[in-house]
Amino acid sequence: MALAPLLILLSAAAISALLCVLLRPLLERYALARPNARSSHRVPTPQGGGIAVLAGAFLAIGLALQALPPLPGAAGLGFVIAASVVLAGVGAWDDIRPLSAGLRLGLQALCVAVVIVYGAPDARLFPELMPLAVERCLALLAGIWFVNLTNFMDGIDWITIAGFVPLTGALALAGSAGVIDPASGLLAAALCGGLIGFAPFNKPVARLFLGDVGSLPIGLLGAYLLFRLADTGALTAALILPLYHVADATITLLRRLARREKVWEAHRSHVYQQATTNGHSVLSVVTTVALLNLALVGLAALSITMPDAAVQWTCIAAAILLTALVMRRFSLRSSAS
C-alpha cells in the first residue's frame, strides 16, 4: 500500500503521455484552437489534451482499486469520476461548438451537486454553525466557482501544471500520511500523474492544450479533494493550497463586474495574462507560480502539523502576503522587456 500512490502516479503519467501522442493528430483535425485577439497563442493549436489527462488518471486508479483491498473513502469515488466524465463531455462539446452560458452553468451545477451529495455524503465542515442544507448550498457555490476559475486560469502554457501538480502532489502525500482518506490520496496521485504525462506537450510553446474537456473536470476533482481535506479539520490548509488561482480569478472577476463587463466572455484581464503583456515571459510566469505554490504547500503542511490558532493565522497571513507579492510583481513591467 505504501507504494500504491507512486505506482498510480507513474501509471497515470505513462498512459496520459501515450494518449497525447495518439490523440494529437485527431485533435488537430477536429479540435483546433485558432488564435484571436484574446488568445495567448499565435498559431492554431489542437486542444483536448484533457482527455489524455483524465483517461490516464481514471484508468490508473481504476486498476489500482481493483487490485487493492477496499479502502476508506472509496465508496464515493464512482460518483466523483462519473460526474467528472459528464463534465468533460460538457467541456468537449463547448470546445467544438460553444454552449450558452446558462446551459453550461446548469450542467456544471448538476455535476458539482452529485459530487457533494454522493461523493462525500458524510462530509461536514461547519456542523455547529449551520444546517446541512445551508452548508451544502455554500459548497455548491464554491464548487461551481472552483470549476470555472480553473477553466479561466488555463490561459497560458503550463499554468494549470504549475497550479495543480503541487496541489495534487501535496494531497497525494497527505493521503499516504493519513491526513486524508487513502482513496482521496490515490485520486490525487492519479490526477497528478495525468498532468505530469501531459506536461511535455503543453510546455511553452505548447503543442497541445487541455481544452475545456480537461480544465472543467480538473477543477471539479480539485474542488472535491480540497473539500475532503477541509473535512478532516484542515480548513486552513484547504484554503492555502489553491490560493494563487483563487485570488487571481476572484480579483479579476470582481474588477470586471465593477467595469460592468460581460464576465462570461473570453478576455485577457487575469493577472498572469497581464504579466505576459508587461514583458514577463510565459516560462518565467509559470515558474513563479509553481514556486509560489510549493511555498503554499509548505505553509499548508505547517498549518496541519501545528494546529495552534496562532500558527493557523500566521500561515494564512504568510500565504496572502506571498500571493500578493507575486501578483504585484506580475502587474509591473519586466526589467528585461
Rank of each mutant, 00 (worst) to 15 (best):
L3K: 02
L6R: 07
L7A: 09
L7N: 09
I8Q: 06
L10T: 04
A12I: 09
A12S: 14
A14R: 06
L19W: 06
L19P: 03
C20G: 04
C20A: 03
L23I: 02
R24N: 01
R29W: 06
L32T: 11
V43K: 14
T45G: 07
T45I: 14
Q47A: 07
G48S: 09
G50K: 03
I51M: 15
I51K: 09
A52M: 12
A52R: 11
L54M: 10
G56I: 01
A57E: 08
F58Y: 15
L59D: 04
A60K: 06
I61V: 15
I61Y: 10
A64F: 07
G76Y: 00
A88N: 01
R97H: 13
P98N: 00
G102Y: 15
Q108C: 11
C111M: 12
V115Y: 00
P121V: 02
D122R: 03
D122I: 00
D122T: 08
F126I: 08
E128Y: 04
P131L: 04
P131T: 05
V134C: 11
L138Y: 01
L138Q: 02
A139T: 02
I144N: 02
M153F: 12
D154A: 06
A162L: 09
A162H: 08
G163N: 14
V165S: 04
T168L: 03
G169A: 08
A170Y: 06
L171Y: 05
L171P: 10
A172R: 10
G175Y: 03
A177L: 05
D181G: 14
P182Y: 00
A183T: 13
A183S: 14
A188V: 05
A189H: 06
A189L: 03
A190W: 08
I196F: 02
N202R: 02
N202I: 04
N202Y: 10
K203E: 02
L208V: 06
L210F: 13
D212S: 01
V213E: 02
P217F: 11
I218M: 11
G219A: 01
R228C: 12
A230G: 09
L239N: 01
L243C: 06
Y244V: 04
A258F: 13
W264M: 06
W264A: 08
Y272H: 15
Q274I: 04
T276M: 14
H280A: 04
S281N: 11
V286F: 01
V289Y: 02
A290C: 10
V297K: 05
A300H: 13
A301M: 10
L302E: 02
A309L: 14
T314W: 12
L321M: 07
L321N: 01
T323F: 00
L325T: 05
S331V: 00
R333A: 07
R333W: 03
S334Q: 05
A336R: 15
